[in-house]
Amino acid sequence: MVLNVVLAFSIVLAILTIGEIVSTKTKAFVPSVFVSATLFLIGYWTILPADIVTQSSFATPIVYLSMYLLLTHMGTLMSVKELLGQWRTVLIALAGIAGICAMTLSIGQVLFGWQAVVAGTPPLTGGVVASILLSNAATELGLPAIAVLATAMYIMQGFFGYPVTAFLLKKEAKRLAEQVRSGEVSFKPHEKLAKENEAESGNKFRIFPPVPEQYLTPYVILLKLGFVAWLAVLASPYLHLNQFVVCLLFGVIGRQIGFLEEKALVKANAFGFLMTVLMAFIFAGLAQATPEMLKEIAAPLFGIIVLGVIGMGIFSIIVGKLLGYTKEMAFSVAMTALYGFPADYVLTIEAIKSMTKTEEEHDYATDQMLPKMLVGGFTTVTIASVIIAGIFVKLL
């Protein structure tokens, strides 16, 4: 079925809008990404064309452009000091990955067999690259059902990750908001921003003067973001890091030296549209999850996910407690393996919005939670899952 581009665009936005409305009405108890994913899945099984997201114009190359710019922008939300201070988050995220592997390779192997857990575990630890590697390897070995399992694992794991993470993040946001309300924590957003600006103006790392306000247009901001993202893509092979990770790092550095503005895409009035592009593209993958596919591999698919989440929770909470994180924050960081960016950002912002009442509470919760979730997502999805997949391909 071929739709008019504007109609396809409107249908996609209607689904995303319904997700937002349900999330707002339920105070993020039912996260928008879960609602939207469910509606897309039902739509693909009934009346929606499988390529509706592509027909709506949310396809490559604009998806990759959005990813580059958004991740560089995310870097402008953090300082070098904040980024380096997230080493505990990295350890907790890795502990969660270890928990997944421990449970699936032990109990999972007994219940579902070696091939199923070897193919299903890497996609559960993170991104699409792991899914593709294991799916291709299973196909080459003449194991079509196992290949389908690897693909379905990547597609379906978010249905577990979204609601569980939303519940955990809401509890954490509520705890942080209550710290501000009770006077236990003093966090003044405007004072903090003034101090940051003052510190940046005297920052020994700043080598670029501020752009005069009359020249700080969306064109200029987007030009600078694009330039930094391009440098990140060029540098990634030499740094032996994923190019999206390098975009985040270069965004942090770009802000530190004064070349990029803080919250760059927000100031360029482009953040909302680019996030819409990325969220729509993520749900396009659900078109592959046909009822026949899910019926064929339902038992190992959902069994491995449940075991993996249990192992992830146990390991991350234990390590998190040793490193001073609450069990909710530690588990949430590990859960980023089930969806990554941008869902980790959306879930965090929705939880904070629903649990805070003042700007002070909102900014404090964002300051405490968002960097952890972003770094956790990159650790699990972008880095750890690829390494795990490279190892497990040889075990299949």
Rank of each mutant, 00 (worst) to 15 (best):
N197C: 03
L84M: 14
I221V: 09
L94Y: 06
A199P: 06
Q368G: 01
V30E: 03
I97H: 09
F283A: 00
A116Y: 07
M279G: 00
A93G: 14
V33N: 13
A119I: 00
E360K: 07
N203R: 12
Q86F: 01
V6F: 15
Q55Y: 06
G376D: 03
K394M: 14
P218H: 08
E213D: 07
A365R: 06
P210A: 02
I18T: 04
F378Q: 04
T139D: 12
D363E: 14
T38M: 15
W45L: 09
I107T: 03
F259D: 00
I253G: 04
E200V: 00
E262W: 00
L83W: 03
M74G: 05
A284T: 02
I97T: 07
A280N: 12
V63D: 09
V309F: 15
P300G: 06
T217D: 13
Q86R: 04
G376L: 02
A384N: 03
E328T: 06
L3W: 13
I257W: 11
I383T: 00
A389F: 05
G303E: 09
E196R: 12
L168D: 04
E178S: 12
A137L: 04
A384R: 00
L338T: 01
G120F: 06
S32F: 04
M103V: 02
A98C: 12
M1C: 04
E184T: 03
E82P: 07
V333W: 11
V80I: 14
I21D: 05
A150Q: 07
T104N: 15
W87A: 11
I18Q: 07
T139Y: 05
L141W: 06
L225P: 03
F205Y: 14
V220R: 13
